[in-house]
């Protein structure tokens, strides 16, 4: 195994094992050794995060573990990103994500955002208690391919349906997929309000987004 591969493995393992400090250190050494930032991100950090998602899906890892893995990944990204070559016009799929108006519980949403970012989506995070119109306005402004909404409370679920109507009125419904999730949400509810998809957890959300946007 060459030196570069050793570094990539160290980055990937560091993310899986939640070693934030070691990942940051390894990223710096990797750059100093003259290797390209892009490969470090994809073959190291993202690879590690993908392994963490796999473990999450197998129920080995839980929200807690994945959040800690993502801390390590972001610590590495902070070091590698500034060394990326200028965008080569690569077209990432774009998404807008947030917790609907009236609800302030956002841990689940944060996890979904992390997983989607890791999977290569460009996400705009509107945070929590997001005014419904803002989902639509941001999607239009960013030319987004999808809107992801979550809520933990039954009282605020109705906002998701409102956003779908707003998208229809703005003539955007055809070009924006709507994905929903959260404690009280179900496939039954997604069908009822005409959302494009429901996912029960963050890993499912990535699969769903890829399927809806025809990404292999």
């Amino acid at each position: 195994m060459g030196k570069k591969e050793e570094y990539l493995k160290r980055l990937s393992d560091g993310v899986v094992e939640m070693e934030e400090d070691d990942v940051a250190e390894a990223c710096q050494e990797y750059l100093d050794a003259g290797y390209p930032a892009f490969d470090g991100i994809m073959g190291g950090l993202v690879d590690g995060m993908n392994r963490a998602s796999q473990l999450y899906e197998e129920e080995e890892y839980f929200v807690t573990d994945v959040l800690l893995c993502s801390d390590a990944m972001y610590a590495g990204l902070d070091i590698l990103r500034p060394h990326l070559p200028d965008e080569d016009g690569e077209t990432k799929k774009k998404g807008v994500i947030g917790v609907v108006e009236g609800d302030t519980h956002d841990i689940g949403k944060n996890l979904v955002k992390i997983m989607l970012e890791t999977a290569g989506f460009e996400m705009t995070d509107l945070g929590r208690d997001v005014p419904l119109q803002k989902f639509v306005d941001t999607a239009e402004e960013k030319n987004a391919d999808m809107i992801c909404m979550s809520t933990l409370m039954t009282t605020t679920m109705g906002g998701m349906e409102t956003v779908i109507h707003m998208l229809e009125e703005a003539g955007l419904r055809e070009q924006v997929k709507v994905l929903i999730g959260g404690g009280p949400i179900s496939q039954k509810y997604a069908d009822k309000i005409g959302a494009d998809g429901y996912s029960a957890n963050a890993v499912e959300a990535v699969k769903l987004a890829k399927r809806l946007l025809n990404i292999i």
Partner: peptide, 9 residues
């Protein structure tokens, strides 16, 4: 009394 406001932030 209307309790709806308790249900939303």
């Amino acid at each position: 009394v209307d309790a709806r406001s308790i249900g939303k932030s």
